[in-house]
Design a protein around this nucleic acid. Structure first.
Lengths: 256, 256
DNA sequence: CATATCGGCTTCCATAGGGAAGCTATAGTG
DNA sequence: CACTATAGCTTCCCTATGGAAGCCGATATG
């Protein structure tokens, strides 16, 4: 009450105390009350000021720290971090949102066949040239036209027959969600800009020469053997990844 | 001791208990002991099993949860999450690392002059057409040749004269780190694939037609007014962003 | 048999308190 | 004056405990 420094904790709210405090402190940063380089009140002071326990304050500081808002230096204090260009990160999730946003995009299966691995594919999937792979091509279409062209090579394993559902996947959710039956242990992604070749240009109904975003993916099964290699090819003018740094907006890692 | 289920907590280690437990549980996931959909032992069980306090277990679970390894459902349990394509995120930090990795890239200032804002620039910077802006062009070069072309428009504010240091920035660190003197409140980033125009092709010593990655940035000052607009243009074949999903590797958010 | 209640489990939140390690400025010593 | 020791602050870690809210199955009741 004698403290005119803004909001205080509402004990009745359904919002947890720690979340409230995170919000309050973030707000002070966006309002410019706290600026990069400034020192936060010490944890003990925050306890008194907001009437919460040390553990709660500790938790709040931890959250703010790995949100990149503050940085703590043992024995010195907690300081507001300056915004850096390198903080930006692009979530692949956005691709799903973007395309699935207005009108849920449909996925059309262009081809699904069994082929022999060529040199490149064999190298990626750690097979010998000529071994059998499942070759699939899909086209993601929104109402505005084709957006994304997806090529994928799957290791053909008679012991683990590829389920129909896998091939017939016709939703982006299917492509993004559990690939197969959650057989994937981990994956490596690469993103780069490329020139579309003739076929790609035609499929995406672009005008040559056209640039595209190529998102390559390589997934490994639980036995650490490559399982799927492929890439998404998106028209440069129809797909854009956005990101934000600093505050003045909701943090991507925020809950709810 | 009677518990053969792997590692236990080392009380003497300098590694904090919570960090050890995080590591142990992650390891169990990568080893396949715990698989997507599996339920973790309850928090109480984890306490007994590893001889740590409930609060510590709670903290561990929180960390794993926002690392995306597990997901907790109130009243039911904590479950291992399946790897999803959408989990991938590309850190702009990598650009800095990539170029600054082997041989630190140099930044050459091609131009720095005062110009009148055209329609596009004025719109971005919320100025009127014709108002003065600082126009800068930089070329980032590694020993392998030009990598990145940077164009930037700064609002010309006589009250806040642009420091020499700002213009003379010749290191990537300078470009990425504190832009100016940490005047930036927040920024918006966009990444897309584009065709290089003639000048860009020439500067980057590419062969037309060539594709490039365009990273556009728009920075706001603390008064919420745009302050800087520009973009990085990188040769598609010289820059690639990598990312990983799932385990079997160190998590990007891990400390130290 | 169908339905409702309850008890035991779960995740989650918050508190109070104690202690280790690190920084800094001050007081004391040569 | 130069240098050292110390006291008081800081972040950071961990424990022990209690309670809220949600899920689920067993038990009792119509």
């Amino acid at each position: 009450m004698n403290d005119a420094s803004g909001e205080s904790i509402n004990r009745e709210s359904s919002e947890p105390v720690y979340a409230q405090l995170v919000r309050i402190l973030r707000q002070q940063v966006t309002d410019g009350v706290l600026r990069p380089g400034d020192q936060l009140p010490s944890e003990a002071q925050l306890c008194r000021r907001y009437g919460v326990s040390p553990m709660t304050v500790r938790r709040v500081v931890n959250i703010l720290a790995d949100q990149g808002v503050v940085v703590g230096e043992q024995g010195r204090g907690i300081f507001i971090r300056a915004v850096e260009l390198g903080d930006a990160s692009f979530q692949l999730q956005r691709l799903q949102d973007l395309v699935g946003g207005d009108e849920p995009a449909t996925v059309r299966l262009l081809q699904a066949s069994i082929a022999a691995a060529d040199a490149t594919t064999a190298a990626k999937l750690q097979l010998r040239v000529g071994e059998r792979v499942i070759y699939m091509r899909r086209l993601v279409e929104s109402e505005a036209g084709p957006v994304c062209y997806h090529v994928e090579y799957l290791v053909y394993d008679p012991a683990r027959p590829v389920v129909e559902a896998e091939i017939a996947t016709t939703s982006l959710q299917g492509l993004f969600g559990g690939h197969g039956q959650a057989l994937i242990k981990h994956g490596e992604l690469n993103i780069e800009a490329v020139l579309l070749n003739d076929e790609e240009t035609r499929l995406l109904q672009a005008v040559a020469p056209a640039a595209g975003l190529r998102i390559e993916h390589l997934f490994y099964a639980y036995d650490e053997r490559p399982m799927s290699w492929g890439w998404f090819l998106c028209r440069g003018d129809r797909l854009r990844f956005g990101s934000r740094v600093g505050l003045g907006h909701e943090h991507p890692l925020d809950p709810t």
